[in-house]
Design a protein around this nucleic acid. Sequence first.
RNA 1: GCCUCGGUAGCUCAGUGGCCAGAGCGGCAGCCUUGUAAGCUGUUGGCCGCGGGUUCGACUCCCGCCCGGGGCUCCA
Length: 484
Amino acid sequence: MSEKREEVVSEALKAEEEQRSSWHILTLEGDLVPVDEFNYKGYKGLQTFSGYEVDKDRTVNQVPPHVTLMKSLELVDYEPASDPGNMRYYPKGRMMKALLEDYVTGMIHDYGGMEVETPIMYNMNHPTLANYLNRFPARQYTIEHDDDKYFLRFAACFGQFLMAHDATISYRDLPLRIYELTKYSFRREQRGELVGLRRLRTFTMPDVHAMCRDLPQAKKEFKRRYKLVRDTLGGIGFENDEFELGIRTTEEFYKKNKRFIQSMVKQHGKPALVEMWKERFFYFVLKYELNFIDALGKASALATDQIDVENGERYDITFMEEDGHEKHPLILHCSPSGAIERDIYALLEKAHMGMAKGVRPSLPLWLAPTQVRMIPVNEGHVKLAMDYAKKLSGGKVRADVDDRGETVQKKIRDAEKEWIPYIVVLGEREVGAEKVPVRVRSDGKLHKMSLKELGSEIKKQVRGKPYRPLPLPMSVQGRPKFVG
RNA sequence: GCCUCGGUAGCUCAGUGGCCAGAGCGGCAGCCUUGUAAGCUGUUGGCCGCGGGUUCGACUCCCGCCCGGGGCUCCA
């Protein structure tokens, strides 16, 4: 995911490229249909993604829903004192982002990725990088001091490739899987392209590379990683049918690997958009992304994987073949979740789209800043509420207490506005009672259950997901208001 | 970067070339002692985005800049 077409190529090359690339829809049956001849009935998302729209006017004159939500939920906000596209994260947003980071990292550990850490800035005059960088002249952040000039990385490729260059690698070590969560990747995107959490100049991206021995091994690994991608996105809280698959490849690679590419489409379960080049202009021969369509009909890529045939040589990464000869590996570049910020964007957009269908918006339970809100009827019940919240917290459930002097109704309203999944009102009736009334957001009903039952219900739903404690004081009274 | 729309209280927004610039929410104080989506009263709060210009006078008109939305199909 390191290189981006627009930044790589000049205007002239771009024009040439437009001429030579063709766009198709690859069906489940394996037919390649030109984009403007495909019948999009039943494939609205794909139609939006392929850009083939009857309504030419795509002007959207409103703030993207996730921008409003990221503020009103006190997750993320703009930071005017920074460069645009650099955000500030409030406690709830930071917790959510940290959980996503932990989760994706865990998934990549399970897949076999060896986690490393590499510098975020590099010398522009480094011989290998200079060659690579000359293709990205205008879009980097640069830092100068004394006589040296540095650039901020736009992905983890640099550090990992330089590390691999210096490593002694045997064919037995392949596929060699290296992982880093880039915090951050920097891309000085055009000002007008920046939007909320969808497109940033500074973002967090898991970047896992796999050095492979040859094409058969690369293809096998590619498949394995496709599963990693699907599992990761699914675990975050997305459904498969929320994504449109985009595939980029060359005519030659497609011809030789037709069945392989078709199998990807089958795995995806829906027709996919294919961009086909007459010749290879970039370092990869095959790339795919899973694209999310938001509430305003904008598509953005989340997960991606690529087969890189060029950088093994450019960075002089070698491994010893069985026959004693050194060879350059093929390199797969994958981000199983896409940018973490973009995951939050997609979760918020998804919640907003649900609202239109009459579904109460919510975040996945494991990401909810508060999972259980205790609401004491009056101050006499605050202690009980605190005891209960502490008990739940001891079992790694995020519970807090609205101890403000507001009415029960007001406190419930505020809890609902925060999308809190479970709300418990505690008054005289609950003193000494085993079961308490739990207001469940997903069905809007009251359920009588014991504290223990509530705790295990939540634990059951978040099984396998990382945990972080409450990002704010347990007492709602003792919290500052970060937004509004 | 270019085109376009916008920036007024912490938030959402109204307003006029001229008295002290407004509302709701929030914050704070007090009352109420609350039972499943907003209890009542009072009070606080604004270089009207920043800089410059026109004018007797600018929040209002003009220019520049900054920030945000949309577009220029770009990607994670």
